[in-house]
Design a protein around this nucleic acid. Structure first.
Length: 156
DNA sequence: GCCAACGTTGGC
DNA sequence: GCCAACGTTGGC
């Protein structure tokens, strides 16, 4: 099993929003970065665990645990001229953007903030917490995932 | 709202 | 294929 960190702006789509969706699942649409797409298209497997991270909010941090819930498939928003994610260079014959469905998996007792993660032992190499990192999907090691989930289960 | 970081675009 | 200009992300 692989582990991931996926960012979302809670004003746009939060962990609570995911829990409230029918089936508690949602297509992870709108990714328009090739590295992030390649992770979804080439490396994600159903059942992979996800740290659901809230960005562009105060404080930013990991809000809950999700999982990969589908095989990769073309991002339909790329074909929709009315979508803000519309990409005229993507077509159904040769779709440029692929996504997976993401599903709620478990709650944390509290948010694990970016600030806290930066101070945690064992997370020094985590790409998601490096300064200047903008990639919305990054791989996480099993140990990093476990440390963050454990921190989030501790009552503060 | 500022701005550093960095991915993408397009002229050459 | 280089690289300057531009746009976006996201912490602060």
């Amino acid at each position: 099993m692989n582990y991931w960190l996926m960012k979302s702006e809670p004003d746009v789509f939060s962990f609570e929003d995911l829990k409230a969706r029918p089936g508690q699942r949602e297509p992870w649409d709108g990714v328009r970065n090739y590295q992030a797409r390649n992770f979804m298209r080439d490396e994600m497997k159903i059942g992979d665990r996800i740290l659901f991270y809230h960005s562009n909010t105060n404080p930013p941090g990991v809000a809950g645990i999700a999982e990969v819930a589908s095989e990769p498939y073309p991002d339909p928003t790329a074909f929709d001229p009315k979508s803000k994610y519309f990409d005229p260079k993507s077509d159904a014959e040769k779709p440029r953007w692929m996504l997976v469905d993401v599903k709620y998996q478990a709650d944390l007792n509290r948010l694990v903030s970016l600030e806290e993660m930066k101070g945690m032992a064992g997370l020094e190499d985590m790409r998601a917490i490096q300064r200047g990192n903008r990639l919305s999907i990054t791989p996480v090691t099993k140990q990093e995932f476990a440390a963050i989930q454990k921190a989030g289960m501790r009552q503060s």
